[in-house]
Design a protein around this nucleic acid. Structure first.
Lengths: 230, 230
DNA sequence: GTCGGTTTGTTCCCGCGTTCACAAACTCCT
DNA sequence: AGGAGTTTGTGAACGCGGGAACAAACCGAC
């Protein structure tokens, strides 16, 4: 009774696999740029930095795109992964908050080459609405609804200070945005059906700090400034 | 036979828990700023955006810092988590690559308030070594070893283009850096004992795109520009 | 001092993800 | 045509993490 949508099956791909597909896509692009036409799972896994068994199992969720005894056709597999992720066409994206980070994001060239197109930069500060960043004019935050409607935007990027992030997210959701990438150091509350992913600099650093601390504890012979409390 | 190090036990904390401790730390800081002195696991979990059972289990790995029937003392728990992560003192950090992203990182105020101190900004381009960003002068990349040695730097941030990232990481490792936060869209190869965490914008967006694509497939009655192929 | 209410710390169970290991399938050489 | 070598795809085992549920412990009222 499983209703095939149109041509492919690919029912439910595990979340962990979804998170790795972009890595494989990038690895395949690198291989293609080097002129490699065919690669084994072993080779691709090495480039992508994962276990080859994991790679094969991940790819098996998409279908059987390899040839036993030979490997994978780089271009073909690349297209299949891109199609599965949904980046064969460009996704329109709005960025809200044109501070230091917003500038960096707007200027990031990897956007367009990887399936995304920045259609608008928004900022609440009216003094910024004169600027043009990376060829895109900064507009008022109130234009959000019009832009989302006209350009069918589904993905929004929050690059505001923490205090404004929840308000921005609420407005985004109200306008019909259903995927949010949050750079603000806050937990965003969103209704069911809206996906949020967060990128948090200080959390990443603190995770590193934890492990770093353990490393120095493990080898207590280092000549640091730690005075013994015994 | 388990050898207590000095005062605490806290042997091995699960990686998933380590990744959430910074979130709890931030939530506790927010509560403290609001004047809250005591909080239950339910309350803290709501602020941190997690399940209360998960929160309690996470905290139990650190020790028994709560009081049954009462909850947790905000300041006390905050200190205990900060100590466990290792951010009671500041960690010196070097940032390599002062492009758009490097500027944004250098200007990020959350650095200092969360246990980190940018001690140096490095760039291979000699034209940038005149600049002063966020009060820190940009220096030549070749100064890396001296800075790492003199300031006992253990954490490095890679904010260069992808092609330079591996070289920068190699140099960092050679200088004695053992934790790297990588913003370049590349897989870094590092020797055993060196921790790498990556922050990758386009991977995050592509994960969102995948789910977004599935959403629109699930409800094919939307009045979009999709022409039926049937 | 005892009892009811509250909240933590922990145990148990389940599901997901990773890894190993191997059969199936393909190529190439003879 | 057949066999050796290679590589994919997958079944099974295993370990980790999440969530519910409950006993232990604490506070306050009477």
């Amino acid at each position: 009774m499983t209703p095939r949508s149109s041509s492919e099956s690919a029912r439910d791909i595990p979340e962990a696999t979804v998170a790795r597909l972009p890595v494989y896509l990038r690895a395949l692009t690198a291989l293609a740029d080097d002129g490699t036409r065919t690669c084994s799972s072993e080779h691709l896994a090495a480039v992508a930095g994962v276990n080859s068994a994991k790679l094969r199992k991940d790819l098996s969720y998409l279908g059987s795109y390899g040839t036993r005894g030979v490997g994978y056709d780089v271009d073909y597999l690349r297209y299949q992964i891109a199609r599965e992720i949904g980046v064969t066409q460009d996704w329109p994206v709005v960025i809200v908050g044109i501070g230091n980070l917003g500038h960096a994001l707007a200027n990031y060239s990897g956007f367009r080459s990887r399936g995304f197109r920045v259609v608008a930069l928004l900022d609440a500060d009216p003094r910024r609405t004169d600027e043009v960043v990376a060829g895109v004019p900064v507009r008022a935050f109130d234009d959000l609804e019009q832009i989302v409607r006209e350009q069918a935007v589904a993905i929004g990027v929050v690059a505001t200070p923490a205090v404004a992030a929840q308000d921005v997210a609420d407005r985004m959701v109200a306008c019909g945005i259903t995927s949010i990438l949050n750079f603000a150091p806050t937990v965003l509350a969103v209704p069911e059906g809206v996906d949020v992913r967060k990128v948090d600099l200080s959390i990443e650093l603190q995770i590193l700090a934890y492990h770093e601390q353990r490393k120095s504890q493990a080898e207590p012979a280092l000549p640091t400034d730690v005075r013994g409390t015994a």
